[in-house]
Design a protein around this nucleic acid. Structure first.
Lengths: 334, 334
DNA sequence: TGATAGCCTGGGACCGGTCACAGTCGCTGT
DNA sequence: ACAGCGACTGTGACCGGTCCCAGGCTATCA
């Protein structure tokens, strides 16, 4: 790539305004004790020249960047993406900037991402790690700045901000059981993904505690397509399905319809996420809402605190909320 | 925020390896003509110290950053987000890094975003501008680096990379007309959004050319909810609906079902996007696929070319593709 | 044996800001 | 009239890299 033509520098502005570069700096940083007239001259010069401060130079000398780094997954799942996007906005509120990069599920790719972020001098990092192995890899890499884990369910060492997954599962399962269901099957996310594992574990815990009938867990990959495949494997005697996310629930709905099983008359379904289309499926999907926006804000709070040295090591949670619609109905004797 | 503790610098590495900082720099940049033994010593020193190059310092002197900036919308729509994410990946392939920020629909917010990006010395900017007014605002701001517009449909001055919206609309409408429909209503996106405007214009053009029956256009905001509202306003004598995106189509499907109108027997529906859940609606949605991944790659190509000075000013398009499923059927006499 | 070339390495200026410090100026008090 | 003080502004070092250029060393050849 060619060299970017350099814009005007602080010295150019200073020359045009007939002051020193230091005075320009003071104006830029809102220092008190500048004669209004001088300030005006400087501002005019900035305007005329279209001057923009070079943040690289600034970061070089100050050693801090007011920037937080974000590492996202390579696949554009709406969940992680929304969370990252929410962080971006929360950061802006706090006058921080964000640097986004993505990493594959390899230590090497993660290393690249970290080099980039740390080399840029980010003050903290938000890591949307789907797979637990990546958390370990990051741990091993030993970066010098605070890292907040986003999708861990709070069940890893270190800083985290996430939805209380287990509570969400209990809301979903509790709703189904409250409707009289005892034969509840689970469509889970990929086994190696932390969130999927936690939801699955909690499902099993509830099944065990309540003495429900055990079913094989069907595993998908979060996509509607995998949900469709899972839907074809739903046991004939299951009366309810708890899906680990809404998008798989869409596929399950489709597969069930093809089998001629009616929802919710024959089978009740509960999803997870409250995806934007969840209220417009046929029938509208009962689900557990995850407030990604809140997680983003929480993550920024945690990062700011950590950078200031007050790092609360206990996990920080956002509570999920059950959204009752029409895809789950009371069990009727059939 | 506290000052980040400074890590080891190139001089520290040089001292430890018993060479000059210059030699360290050469090793880092893969310069030829370093004795293997020397190189090994330097690499060891880097390893031992956990040294990471300070990119701010590097950017300061080189004047280029190998980084492209991205400006996204504040609302996390899957379309723009996917495109931006695709750029991030395409950029990584090309050994570029990405700096993401978002801007609201105000000149001030855009100015902040630009200050950040340009101040960081990005070599080019990808702008996911939903609203045309923002394109003008950016034009007016006059940044010194190439800007590629993503969601413009290629119909703005300057560089762009986008889906050929008009072709997509003609595919959708052509499909419907081929099935015998002449009473086709349109559910559009927000009027001030470029893509929505283009799809709407092209819809009207097709209607005019083919001499179809005119219907009022119902406007939504891309969301399933707005699609639901739009669905309630579908004319009783319309036999087909062309929705400007899939998510609104979900809502329309829902609304139509509530009215007791069957899809596709009574009303045919075509969407736009090929959203991940589109193949699992009831019935599965016929739609126009947008390949965001390809747009991302294209955008990076355009940016690299522009930075190298070969800026092809004509718009670059990715062709959409009609995906035929079951929500649109031949018009039967009723 | 000494000059020349080629390989490898080091020295110093510089990028564009911020920081610490040192002026300059006008006004007051005695 | 002059020291003293506060308000305002300027000077130069420095952050951590890269670039240009100069130098030391070994190998080759006259």
């Amino acid at each position: 790539m060619a060299k970017t033509s350099r814009g005007p520098s602080m010295h150019d502005v200073a020359a045009r305004a007939g002051v020193s570069h230091q005075t320009v700096s003071r104006v830029l940083n809102d220092f008190p004790g500048i004669r209004p007239e001088t300030r005006a001259r400087v501002i005019d010069a900035i305007e005329e020249l279209g001057y923009r401060r070079n943040l690289a130079a600034r970061a070089l000398v100050t050693g801090r960047t007011q920037t937080i780094g974000m590492i996202g997954p390579v696949v554009p799942d709406i969940g992680p993406l929304s969370t990252l996007h929410a962080i971006e906005r929360a950061a802006r509120e706090a006058d921080l900037h964000t640097l986004m990069t993505s990493a594959e599920d390899t230590a090497e790719s993660l290393g690249d991402a970290l080099d980039f972020l740390v080399g840029r001098g980010v003050d903290a990092i938000a890591f949307a790690a789907e797979r637990e192995v990546m958390v370990e890899a990051l741990e091993a890499a030993g970066v010098g700045v605070p890292v907040v884990y986003l999708l861990s369910g709070g069940e890893v060492a270190g800083l985290s901000a996430s939805i209380d997954q287990r509570a969400g599962v209990r809301q979903a399962m509790g709703h189904l059981m409250g409707l009289g269901h005892t034969r509840i099957q689970h469509v889970s996310g990929p086994a190696e993904v932390t969130e999927a594992r936690i939801r699955r574990e909690e499902y099993l815990a509830v099944v065990g505690e309540a003495g429900l009938e055990p079913f094989d867990i069907v595993e998908g990959d979060w996509s509607p397509d995998s949900g469709f495949a899972a839907g074809q494997a739903i046991a004939a005697d299951a009366t309810a399905v708890f899906c680990a996310n809404d998008e798989m629930a869409y596929g399950v709905l489709h597969a069930l319809a093809e089998q001629g099983r009616r929802v919710p008359e024959d089978v009740s379904i509960v999803g997870f996420d409250d995806h934007s289309a969840a209220c417009h499926t046929l029938p509208p999907l009962t689900t557990v809402r995850q407030d990604f926006e809140a997680v983003g804000r929480l993550a920024v709070d945690v990062m700011v605190a950590a950078v200031d040295g007050e790092a609360p090591e206990e996990p920080r949670y956002v509570s999920p909320e059950l959204i009752v619609r029409e895809s789950a109905a009371p069990l009727e004797s059939r």
